[in-house]
């Protein structure tokens, strides 16, 4: 059966895709003191890619992103763990957080904490996980290529 694509859904998803990604980034950076954070942001980003998949199937998904999902997973884990290790190397406890603030002239003062880097890691892990799920479980017609016949 050839998949039929809905034009309306396709267009809507194309319009929404980047907005959703921006929203996910907003949630990621807002996360420390406000609702949001790496997990929520990652989920929203996954939803963006999930919509791509719903509209155009796995081919659309693979066209919209060229980095393998496993790389997202790995880099995300690396980010999260290294955040912990940095505080260890500077003589503090594992995962101890620090708060930085920088004065960016026109943009005003930006305050952030090392937790942000951990959150970025979580974001990437969630996103990688979701992409991997879509890739592995959502093959073209419900079958995956290395499937064993019963």
């Amino acid at each position: 059966m050839t998949p039929r694509r809905s034009v309306i859904l396709d267009l809507c998803v194309q319009a929404e895709f980047h907005t959703l990604l921006l929203l996910s980034l907003y949630l990621l950076f807002a996360g420390h003191n406000q609702p949001g954070g790496g997990f929520a942001g990652g989920l929203v980003a996954s939803c963006a890619f999930g919509l791509r998949y719903v509209a155009g199937g796995s081919s659309a998904l693979s066209r919209s992103i060229s980095i393998p999902a496993t790389t997202f997973l790995g880099v995300g884990m690396l980010f999260a763990i290294l955040t912990g290790c940095v505080s260890l190397l500077t003589g503090h406890e594992f995962l101890e957080s620090a708060i930085f603030s920088a004065d960016l002239m026109v943009l005003g003062t930006v305050k952030t904490s090392s937790v942000l880097f951990f959150d970025i890691g979580v974001y990437l892990v969630v996103l990688g996980m979701a992409l991997l799920l879509l890739e592995q479980l959502g093959g073209a017609d419900g079958t995956d290529p290395d499937e064993v016949q019963p």
Partner: peptide
């Protein structure tokens, strides 16, 4: 450092191993 390493090192290695898929 000593106490955290048995947990952190394998996780770190796992992350690298996923990147080197």
């Amino acid at each position: 450092v000593l106490l955290v390493l048995p947990i952190v090192l394998p996780l770190l290695a796992a992350a690298l191993a996923i990147i080197a898929y």
